[in-house]
Amino acid sequence: MVKLNAKTLHNEEYFYGHKACGGCGESLALRHAMKVLGPDTFAALPAGCMAAVSFIYPNMAFTTNAMITPFAATGAVASGMAAGLEALGIEGTQTIGIAGDGGTADIGFQALSGAIDRNDDIIYLATDNEAYMNTGIQKSGLTPYGTRTTTSPAGKNLPGSIRQKKNMFEIVAAHGISYAATASVGYLEDFLMKMAKAKAVKGTSYIHVFVPCPTGWGYPAQQTVSLAKAAVDSGLWYLAEYEAGEFKLNRNPKSFTPAADYLLAQSRFKHLTPEDISRIEAQRDAKWEIMRRKWLG
């Protein structure tokens, strides 16, 4: 497989002219995902920012076939599109479902599980910005501990969200999926290669990409990529793959950058006390201890 990077990636665009906020990490992920998948892509997007900013009649942001689906239905609609294309004998296409963290880990979870269970030939791209951004920054099942959202306020009694992120990557892998990976818009080449791998897979594949949101997280728009990198470098996000029944850590830092540097750069974490941050680091270390023990041959 040709190594995909700024030099080798073509200049065609299949997703542009949308109304996303400046610095939107999610639209950055979509743009690059579509560049890998190409013009013969059929995309299904449920309610969420990307649907809201891309299908505003009469201005359509996808140059390929694309549609808005019922919120809970990304996996099912994408499955149906792939099945319809196959039944009609239309070859050489790629079907993709693209949903946010809420659309994936909460309301769309069941339909995603059904699609993986059938091993339908689709890619499911989960774009994780850790809250319901389109509706105004409410807590989702992928909002991490200590996050201030509009439904998990931080105050005297609570530090914001009190639960850790659902472990979607491993939940998906537990289905015995053909291919699954985590990624970040901070490490675009890694993300591009994983998209290319998913495209080559016959059967269901799942990419969970971490996408900072300046509007929802409270940071200057130009820091999206550096924050996405910082999340990985501080160990609060990780780059991994699940393939042929095996987990693989793509990046195993010898040491982590301080979690506080990443967290306190965002207004959603500004309220965290040193104790809260220590707790987050302890959760991180426990997670990495398990990943390293189990996933590093």
């Binding site: 019922p70 099912a76 609609v77 792939a82 099945a83 009609l88 339909a111 059904g114 269970d117």
Partner: peptide
């Protein structure tokens, strides 16, 4: 499919490509 919601959603996907 794993539910009626997905039954109709699948049908929507199928029909949207002209099948």
């Amino acid at each position: 499919v794993e539910s009626e919601h997905s039954a109709m959603s699948c049908a929507i996907g199928v029909s949207s490509v002209g099948a």
